[in-house]
Nucleic acid binder design. Sequence first.
RNA 1: GGUCUUAUAGCUCAGCUGGUUCAGAGCACCUGCCUUACAAGCAGGGGGUCCUAGGUUCGAAUCCUAGUGGGACCACCA
Length: 890
Amino acid sequence: MELASKYNPADVESKWYQYWLDNGFFKSKPDGREPYTIVIPPPNVTGVLHMGHMLNNTIQDILVRRARMLGKNACWVPGTDHASIATEAKVVNKLAQQGIKKSDLSREEFLKHAWAWTEEHGGIILKQLRKLGASCDWDRTGFTMDETRSKSVIKVFCDLYKKGLIYRGVRMVNWDPKALTALSDEEVIYKEEHSKLFYLKYYVAEDDGKGETGAEGEVVHRDAKGRYAVVATTRPETIMGDTAMCINPKDPKNRWLSGKKVIVPLVNRVIPVIEDEYVDIEFGTGCLKVTPAHDVNDYMLGEKYNLTTIDIFNDNGTISQAAGMYVGQDRFDVRKQIEIDLDKAGLLEKTEAYTNKVGYSERTNVVIEPKLSMQWFLKMEHLAKIALEPVMKDELKFFPPKYKNTYRNWLENIKDWCISRQLWWGHRIPAYFLPKGGYVVAETAEEALALAKEKSGKELKLSDLRQDEDCLDTWFSSWLWPISLFDGINNPGNEEIKYYYPTNDLVTGPDIIFFWVARMIMAGYEYEGDMPFRNVYFTGIVRDKIGRKMSKSLGNSPDPLMLIEKFGADGVRMGMMLSAPAGNDILFDEALCEQGRNFNNKIWNAFRLVKGWEVNEQLAQPASAEIATKWFGMQLNKTIAEINDCFEKYRISEALMAVYKLFWDEFSSWYLEMVKPAYQQPIDKATYEKTLGYFETLLKLLHPFMPFITEELYQAIKDRDQKDSIMVSLLPKAEEVCEKKISRMETTKEIIAGIRNIRAEKGISPRESFEMYYKGDLDEKNNAVIEKLANVSKIEKATGDLGGATATFMVGTIEISIPLGNNINVEEEVKKMEEEIKYLEGFLVSVNKKLGNEKFVANAKPEVVENERKKKADAESKIATLKANIEKMK
RNA sequence: GGUCUUAUAGCUCAGCUGGUUCAGAGCACCUGCCUUACAAGCAGGGGGUCCUAGGUUCGAAUCCUAGUGGGACCACCA
């Protein structure tokens, strides 16, 4: 078989993915084995794969494939999220392009469009995951709005309602004027903004323009029209909703306003001046305008002082009838206009540049309007309580653990969760209103009817009930994901939920720790009485190589599929992992995928070498090969233990680096060179079989990271049964390691490197063989290896004087000398040795200083002191040797 | 403003309980090589005030304090 010198991933990737699918290797059913479960963080159903997904799913696939190869029953459940607001926004946009307004459609008609859109774009992302090699059990693919999941959501809603944890009420909520819905606090993103602070004049009502002068410390504003207060605001357009002005009772400069009434500028409404310590004396003028309908804190004041609320906004952010002016105009247009109007009327004292934080809708990116409205809420106190302790006690572990703090902080300051959304795409709230007021909550309309009859004591028909128009927050379905995927809500205690729950690892970004992770933990304990997953691995955010967040608008995000095409899925997976230490942001650079691809090629070429050997059964195993096979077995086990340790700590990129070095350095650069027969010569059987065995083990270790090339080569090593795939093979266990063999080989490598170095420095061809003499206790067991790799014809312990023409170097305390005949430059050698002596003498000084310090000798641990003494002796003996050598050369 | 986190080679990061695994890895860089698996390669090499200033200690990259510079999250300023 002639193999190309370059590996071509495109030739093999789809073939093996299909093979895995055809043989059902991704499938999982409960059985007697230990389960290993991951549920995918469901991507938006209509989304496309981005680099964040690549990272996330690569990690999950590595964990799942590894678990499978450890003999566990690995189950990775894929699925998608209906993404209520995001998807609805997309559908609304698409309809708008066709000239259709959502408001012109009935709920049913709109949902038809939404489902059509979902079917058209849905699941693209899952297909893309296949290209990456994701070993999900596709038969289990879930969707947050499929039948099982929907039923679960409704059931949970009713249950929480019955438990008194869900309530309905008018509250100040975050209103998205574009999507026309309420949002939870978590869906609001605060951005710093350069805006203006407007100073408005509020004249004192019934003031004759003369009035008294201010007392000590008071600041009284006055002009021809009378006395006035100045209020600083960033939102002058809300003055139509002002129903009070507030000062701090401890504020001397505004004392004179106490008990007065003032006139809202332009609006001319007379409002009271109230006093509350909430007002910051230092801010602006210390006078606050109170608009209870449009600011959270003002609302609080309104409640406290029983102020009237005037809602001056329509749902879409335009000014409402209630405002009485600027009706129908947009809030931001009015802000500009009212500035002009106030100024003209002499009611604007000044404006100042000002930086403040403004809340934006996470999804539609419009400025959030705090708004009073009737919504459904979930009480969080109980749920927060049951979710906190397991994480703080590390029963449920976070990687990296620093996120425990973030988690605790959120849970300890949690507010009730606004779960209703004024959207159609989602789970409709199962609340039914009675004709004469009141409502009932039930899983089905029929049950609701029964309850309604009971409640009203009257005969009612289904058509008399009106179901709540709102639907639930997307996260109200995703928080059940680890349970609902195994139907644990509808069918408690079923075989699957018992087997797969709690799941093992959750891999996700820290950006959804509140949205999703925390809430899943709550739901897990509430509904299963147990954690939803044992470990949470938080990935970093994928950034470009100069640290900018990858985003569509910056155009700095590569298309994952293009990357796969260019470097192969294995190369890209490796590129992602090389750059991804846990918890730190990932500075993604295509060069890392290139490194991944190069590594693939390295593996490929190592395979070409091994596979190209011809075996001669008569041949005895050469000594060098025997040493090599024994040593590499040890090295292999050592690295396996290292890898296991890395995985335990979720240091996945370090695990990869360990295999990488094992394959490239130890196996390819050292081992293969040791056992490689001369050109076109056959190899002995024992070495050949050992080597193939090692190769296969290496492939297994690499498989979780690079599934495709490893399957390709696993199959190419020999003919295998249809069902014999590397992905269902078992990883070797780490066996006892003989450290002595390993350290002996390290010495051997150093000697070889030293000799190669001499050749390089002197320009002597590798073909010209050397003799080697040594002083010190060199273990001669590896001599055959030195002879082969350094082209040394003879190794001997130096007995007498070697004469002048030798190059000498030290490996530990062993002195290696290579006679060079005419190739030597005595002066150069002496100079080199003198430099070494200088260094050693400096070293000695520091060691002697330490040993001369009585406190050190008295206080340090004995072994440390002993070590220092040894260092001293070694250095002294080295210096003596070097000095003797110099003498001889001269 | 609060909480947390971080600073080590040109870049990205390891460095555990303070001491020979103590200054490391990968990449990048430099110098030789188209040597017979691999130039997507091989063999070598250079490169760091371990952020700054104090402190604890016989001994500090490591522990403590402060400062400076990054980053993250939360929160209230109209």
